[in-house]
Amino acid sequence: MPDVGSKCRVCKQPAIIDLPRHNANFCAEHFLELCRRQVVKAIDQFDMLTKDDRILVAVSGGKDSLAVWDMLLELGYHADGLYIGLGIGDYSDISGDYARAFAAARGLKLIEIKLRDEYGYDIPTAARATRRVPCSACGLSKRHLFDKAALDGGYTVLVTGHNLDDEAAVLLGNTLRWEIGYLARQLPVLPARDGLPKKVKPLVRLTERETAAWCVVRGIDYLVDECPMAAGNRHLGHKETLNAIEAQSPGSKAAFYLNFLERMAPLLAAHAEQERDALQTCNQCGAPSGGELCAFCRLVVTSSQHEPVPVELIMRGGRNRR
């Protein structure tokens, strides 16, 4: 092919990807190398993991969670996976297939929890029953079950696949409203404490485009299609806004989030301590809670009594207006 395309910054072979924020192009090998370096840097910089840790990776079947699982194994960590069946119609069935296929092909352990079977509800039903935005009911459920599975399984660390775009979008949302409490807790490492495992986000130095490209280059099959309940939510809107800024000024996203961690988070540290101490314990499940019953246990009570709501109904009910 008469393609006089760009060359890899490192080896001058034909490039497969352009990374405007690094003002450079890379071949497959050196792109992977760059990703590994960013992950190792995040792990070291924030004391995320050691080779002795028993790691549980929260796996959704999407690009980020499979990429982080793959990278950790490649870097020599021991990591099992945890998949939660959220009951979001076909989307959940298919995402589970991807997670299972990834684990099976590599002989990895994948723990599975089905909301409907074990707690008597699913996300569409919870959204309707609690009148929450689906992603809010979902996020609350996942966070609780990730924590519980990590503690029950004797894991020392819970890993999630949150990437730079995820964190920058949350940061933008919190900053727009000056949510000081949330800002103080928005860290790539949350230490273990009573009722909560240590939680880390090794992908915070990689953009979504980079984690997706990692999967393509490594031949990892992941679920490309979007969760039907995500359409139109605020988080996606913030990502698009940041990417519009990024297109004008490459590197903005990384500077926004990484400089927050370096310059702003330390100033908020005292505030984070205060928030942490204020918590009580849930009477039902023992998890840290703002009241006698934690938000998850309240959601289970309300949702499991509600008749099942199909995902289509929630989608039609207005594309997550908030």
Partner: peptide, 18 residues
């Protein structure tokens, strides 16, 4: 371009790829 990848025959194509 920040939110998309181009794939041809299973391989990524960079921004100035033809």
């Amino acid at each position: 371009r920040e939110s998309h990848l181009i794939i041809r025959n299973g391989t990524l194509v960079p921004g100035d790829g033809l």
